[in-house]
Write a protein that binds this DNA or RNA. Sequence first.
DNA 1: GTTCGAAATGTGAACGTGCACATCGACGAT
DNA 2: ATCGTCGATGTGCACGTTCACATTTCGAAC
Lengths: 342, 342
Amino acid sequence: MDAEKVRRAPSIRDVAKLAGVSHQTVSRVLNDSPSIKPATKQRVLDVMNEVGYRPNRAARALVTSRSNTIGILTAQTTAHYGPTTSVNAIQVAAREAGYMVSTTSISSLSPEGIIEGLEHLVEQSIEGLVVIAPQERVFDAIRSLSIRVPLVTLDALGTDAARSLSVDQIAGARMATRHLIELGHRDIVHVAGPRDWTEAEGRMRGFLDEMRSADLSLIPPVLGDWTAQFGYHAGKELAGFRDFTAVFAANDQMALGILHAFAEAGIRVPEEVSVVGFDDIPEAAHFWPPLTTVRQDFAELGRRAVALLLSELAGESDLDHAAVRPELIVRRSTAPPRGGRS
Amino acid sequence: MDAEKVRRAPSIRDVAKLAGVSHQTVSRVLNDSPSIKPATKQRVLDVMNEVGYRPNRAARALVTSRSNTIGILTAQTTAHYGPTTSVNAIQVAAREAGYMVSTTSISSLSPEGIIEGLEHLVEQSIEGLVVIAPQERVFDAIRSLSIRVPLVTLDALGTDAARSLSVDQIAGARMATRHLIELGHRDIVHVAGPRDWTEAEGRMRGFLDEMRSADLSLIPPVLGDWTAQFGYHAGKELAGFRDFTAVFAANDQMALGILHAFAEAGIRVPEEVSVVGFDDIPEAAHFWPPLTTVRQDFAELGRRAVALLLSELAGESDLDHAAVRPELIVRRSTAPPRGGRS
DNA sequence: GTTCGAAATGTGAACGTGCACATCGACGAT
DNA sequence: ATCGTCGATGTGCACGTTCACATTTCGAAC
């Protein structure tokens, strides 16, 4: 009513005065403390509503030394489907739990770039951190900064620096490989992801495990960079050799590039060569031919990351943290090999 | 040295004591005030380093009532390539300018969902807001909340509620359409985006403008939802009619679905029907056939959004805010029509 | 040596909230 | 009637920083 002063947001003291109570009572209403008379509570709430009171986060953070914020560190690769989906899920889950989310994407994968990004997050006194940049050097940076907040990593193999949460990459890769073997393929080539990505490592391991247990001889894998562009070049290269009947690409984008190269070279998929991808991006169902691939539930992963973080913040650090099982999606890019050896 | 107390982060007073100066002097070092003797400054910096001092953001925010944070509101559609790329660019640019970024993705496009997301951001007392959810109802929500911070919108047509920044959708759509017309197509069908997306609206408008100025008769456009899935169904439908020789899809994903449907129906692209997309996602170059499309520089858009926001925060609200020009990328999904009328 | 102004530094209060503790009143048991 | 207990509310301070203003220091000019 008598707001003759300049524009200053109303504080709990203003509300208190208008409601005829002490500021502490208002504070109690805010944190809904048990011992408060319903009538006073209502009166305070009414006043708040009337004057448009909004709690000041900074003041609260200062006194409680809790920021109510969790940080996300992502590689720029978030332009990829999976990480983005996870990030979205994290944001929604965090908001539901009353947390804010501060995201930082690191522009370069150099140690300086990584450290800069981490510093930026740490300075915000985040309470928890989710890392979606599963490269070893990122973990090195984390260790070197000795970050002391709960930390969850997505899509990585268990690294000691962090609690990691992931779709079981090895199992997924084994499914894909076994599918090809069961169709009768014996000469399978793997187009892998970059060496220092733990996801790439996991998929490679699964592939190798399955090949070994089927006692098949190995064609040296090709190391790629996840892009369709690379897949295309690798595919052109491979088209020259033809010492294989199936390709297992470490992600759908590279698979797409490979399909492109094969189409150009006149190699028919799946009649002459089968191709399998990984991730099941929404577009994969509409590649030509529609891609057989391994589906990962990225959103579920994001939600679990938040759950894990919150439980750790609450001190109950023994939540379910098993790997999420992937799922094989068979479409039309795989078929038995021509000469059907097996 | 004598940190016998519990773990409490050192404050400027602690630093001051150790350096033998007043807390205000330390504060001056922090904000590098001009009048401070280099020697004392160095001494203070040394102590800071030694005790691992980190400024407390909350305290600073409380007293200055500035949060140093900008908010991003995105639709879940951020799983799409464009928005994600822009978000990343915003994060990098904001960090360079010393700002934090708090992102909220709205889970549902219902009015409640939108308002909930906005409230969540406003409660963090953000200093500026970038909205990447160019639906009219989002702007309605913004208006209804009478948000009072600088606001920039991406990918939208000029809406009065906000300063908008965009790639010129109309020009892009005209380029795509003109390309088809110049090849000799006369019967072109447009598979559009959802009605209340301003981007979809812009592309539709550009298409209609160009068709009218070439004096061509119109096939009623199909209204889609941006997904490859929809494109596929629309493509199957269209395959039955064949009263067109070219399709202009409002984005690359839908174009992909259309290619899929046509491949299944045995319609050869581009020999029988030409297809054009929009966005130039990295995969578009590897569709089969490689897709002719309109490239947008999403990262540039993100950077400009931050620049615009910062200039507005600084009071100089007259920065360049012209539309970014898109670029036509001709690949192999377009060719002259069979009967070559023109 | 005195004076003066500018440079360098110090002092105290404020920002808005939560915490620890104090106070007040009512009600039941003795 | 007295005391203790418990529910409901109030009081004062602390959090770590910046701001406005006060004070000291220093060098140069007289």
